[in-house]
Design a binder for these strands. Structure first.
Length: 773
DNA sequence: CAACGTGC
């Protein structure tokens, strides 16, 4: 018999645990993040326990339901073995009560509690399963009116679940995975949503963009110029495409043109006037915000506005406490220099003094300008002048909270801060108490406690996070933002650091190059020229600290290997040399480089112990890159380590393959189930290298990277090198990257918001003054 | 095409 191709959840490719709820351990209503204890009824996992802890994004679970969880086991450092659910499915209600409740729910029109009870009495607890298998039984249920029978039949078919969803989306080329996601998202309402509100899929189901939803809508008979269609396209363009490029808004013209293109379908087009009208309607409904001829998603507008307002409030709170006499500061600074046995440069002294006397300050400078030194100085001098202890132990059990807060957007940057200051630093998310879905425990109602806050690596903070942080700030706090505006921008929308620096009334200090002698270093000079959009004439001429090997095509790959081989002969190791590349795939991609570089730096010895993951072999001596944060191990995303031991399953009590990696002094053991927490690091991505420095950087620069070649990416890469920089590739590609900075420009209104809210404050003050006069 | 953080 010819069978329709179908996706069976119970086939052996998907692992599952079927079970019932014992107790919900944790459930967050905003994000739906759930931890629950489950009684195992059946599983195809290698698991023999009666109970299991599951985690995942799930609706509130009920005790009377049977669930099918698809996922995999994870070893949580604190909570042990847990099943991480990727997809789940609700089995039909099992108990009599649940079945009655289900049948009398809104899903089955015309069937109330009485009728539902009757059906279950006649058909049993598995009434629905039975009726689905043999719908003809419906007519045999006594006391059911013809109308009720018809409704029941229709609803049963409609809500049959996954099969129905798959059938509904099949004509649109959506595979079983997406069908499953849709079903998971809407459960019983999935088919209804697909039929009536297909554009909701864009928002709710990752992997469905405007075009896919639009295909479905079209299949449902959606008119080309239907308001719903136009509105969905507007939101999609702003949310998905705009924020992907880092924009906080889109200019009206860009939006209209973009939406017109998105909606055009052969001869069927929608004119920009109609789109404009919809945009206006959406503004009336407060689903969009229009300011100065640009269009915002409300969340982004309020983030800009709220952050700007808070910054200005802090500025106006300039208290007399901060008004320290310059003489005292100078004296204390000199004493500090003596104590730390060092000398601050003039711009560093100014930075430290300004930081201590301002309620808000931005500190910026390129790599090697001593931002870290200044942070340390600020903290030390602050404690000195205010006579406060910097020993966290002194605050244990006391009412007074630790007054100095240090944070950074990434775990690794926080770790570096901890190391350089001796004071515990955290991620911004940790400080604010992340709750999922963009919500935090700390906010305007429950502000954080502290007197001085320093935020490092501010270039990586997007406008949403900046707003969340600003909301949680008490009014009496001194805050210092630190960062390098020429580095890679934040993943999320906005360019908060840049905008702060471009706003005149925001107190700021720029550090100039001090440490890596500018005159001696042609790397620094190169970086400077690049900043200004220039390529030095001597790019190809060997310098004392950099070289450019011109080559193209396959030669680039060979040149990189040759450079490394020569370095090895000179006695350098993989610790000294870091190869960087912008992307993983391709002929000069990270993946391919790592395979060959492993062969060079850590060749396989006879009978060497090694463990295989996919096509990669790990062995002792391999340089590896940590990919996730493991705060409990003091190891963070981006940390580089070295494999120091390979242990086979038969050699340990857990009977699981293990790899031990050493990060500086710390050694961390990974089980096979955690091997995806690291990867080879002979070559790593430029993005991952952000925040690290290496003695020697080797960098391929080729046209095949053209999509990624932008000025700030190249800048970030070359400024990672402390002593020597080796470029291999095409000069044309280098020039191209330096020229390309406009394309990375982001639409941001933060500078404007900072200025307008500043003026509004002035006005309020004037009014107050006038009134008191 | 690459990239951040996180809940018991």
């Amino acid at each position: 018999m010819a069978q329709q191709p179908s996706f069976h959840l119970d086939d052996d490719t998907s692992r599952y645990i079927k079970g019932t709820l014992i107790a919900t351990v944790y459930h967050q209503t905003e994000s739906l993040y759930t931890v629950a204890r489950i009684r195992v009824k059946a599983t195809n996992e290698n698991y023999n326990e009666k109970e299991v802890m599951i985690t995942g994004i799930l609706p509130p679970l009920r005790e009377d339901e049977l669930y099918l969880f698809y996922g995999k086991f994870k070893d949580h450092p604190k909570y042990g073995k847990q099943y991480e659910v990727e997809l789940f499915k609700k089995e039909m209600p099992q108990s009599k009560e649940a079945m009655i409740q289900y049948l009398s729910s809104d899903l089955f029109k015309g069937i109330g509690k009485k009728t539902a009870e009757h059906i279950v009495d006649v058909m049993g607890n598995d009434a629905i399963t039975k009726l689905l298998e043999a719908p003809e039984y419906i007519s045999q249920i006594p006391k059911l009116t013809e109308e009720q029978a018809k409704n029941l039949h229709g609803a049963l078919l409609e809500n049959r679940g996954l099969d129905q969803v798959m059938m509904a989306v099949q004509p649109y080329g959506l595979g079983p995975q997406l069908a499953m996601k849709i079903f998971q998202t809407y459960q019983d309402e999935a088919v209804t949503v697909i039929k009536n509100e297909p554009y909701r899929l864009i928002e709710d189901v990752p992997g469905i963009g405007f075009h896919r939803a639009d295909e479905i809508a079209k299949g449902n008979g959606m008119q080309v110029n239907h308001p719903e269609r136009i509105q969905a396209a507007c939101l999609f363009l702003l949310r998905d495409q705009g924020t992907d490029l880092g924009h906080s808004y889109l200019p009206m013209e860009d939006l209209l043109e973009g939406v017109r293109k998105l909606l055009a379908d052969g001869k069927d087009t929608v004119d920009e006037m109609s789109i404009f009208r919809e945009v206006q309607d959406m503004e009336t409904e407060k689903r969009l915000i229009i300011k100065e001829k640009v269009v915002y998603l409300p969340s982004l507008y309020f983030a800009e506005r709220g952050f700007a307002q808070k910054m200005n409030t802090l500025l106006q709170n300039q208290k007399s406490d901060y008004d320290l006499p310059d003489e005292k500061l100078e004296d204390e600074l000199s004493a500090l220099e003596k104590r730390l046995n060092m000398n601050y440069a003039k711009s560093q002294r100014e930075a430290i003094k300004k930081a201590l006397t301002s309620s808000l300050m931005v500190l910026t400078g390129g790599p090697g300008t001593g931002k870290t030194t200044v942070i340390k100085g600020i903290v030390e001098l602050y404690s000195e002048i205010h006579g406060i202890s910097l020993n966290p132990e002194d605050y244990r059990g006391k009412k007074e909270p630790f007054p100095v807060l240090l944070v950074a957007p990434t775990g690794r940057a926080a770790k570096r801060m901890t190391e350089s200051t001796g004071i515990p630093a955290h991620t911004i998310h940790r400080l604010l108490g992340w709750k999922g879905g963009g919500h935090f425990e700390k906010n305007e109602d429950e502000p954080i406690e502290g007197k001085l806050l320093i935020v490092d690596e501010m270039s990586m903070v997007d406008i949403w996070l900046a707003y969340s942080l600003s909301k949680a700030l008490p009014e009496q706090i001194q805050i210092i933002f630190v960062g390098d505006e020429d580095q890679l921008p934040s993943v999320g929308p906005g360019q908060v650091l840049k905008d702060l620096l471009q706003t005149e009334h925001i107190p700021q200090t720029r550090l100039i190059d001090i440490y890596r002698q500018s005159e001696g270093s042609s790397i620094i000079r190169l970086a400077h020229e690049m900043k200004n959009g220039q390529v030095p004439e001597d790019l190809l001429i060997p310098q004392n600290d950099r070289r450019f090997f011109p080559c193209s095509g396959e030669h680039v790959f060979q040149a990189i290997l040759q450079v490394c081989e020569n370095a090895i002969k000179k006695g350098y190791t993989s610790r000294d040399i870091q190869v960087l590349a912008p992307m993983y795939k391709g002929p000069v991609g990270i993946d391919r480089l790592n395979v060959e570089l492993q062969r060079l730096f850590n060749p396989e010895k006879q009978k060497q112990r090694q463990l295989q993951v996919a096509n990669v072999f790990y062995r002792k001596g391999d340089k590896v890159l940590q990919l996730v944060n493991q705060p409990e191990d003091q190891v963070f995303n981006g940390d580089i380590g070295e494999i120091v031991a390979v242990i086979y399953a038969r050699e340990n009590t857990e009977k699981e393959d293990q790899i031990v990696i050493s990060f500086d002094e710390i050694e961390v053991t990974y089980k096979r189930s955690e091997f995806h927490h690291f990867t080879h690091a002979f070559c790593c991505s430029i993005h991952k290298s952000q925040g690290s420095e290496y003695p020697i950087v080797v960098l391929p620069v080729v046209k095949s990277f053209y999509r990624m070649l932008k000025r700030n990416l190249l800048y970030t890469a070359i400024t990672r090198s402390k002593e020597y920089l080796i470029l291999c590739g095409e000069q044309e590609a280098f020039n191209w990257a330096v020229q390309r900075s406009d394309e990375t420009e982001r639409y941001s209104g933060l500078k404007l918001r900072l200025e307008e809210t500043w003026l509004e404050k002035d006005n309020t003050n004037d009014t107050l003054l006038n009134e008191t006069n």
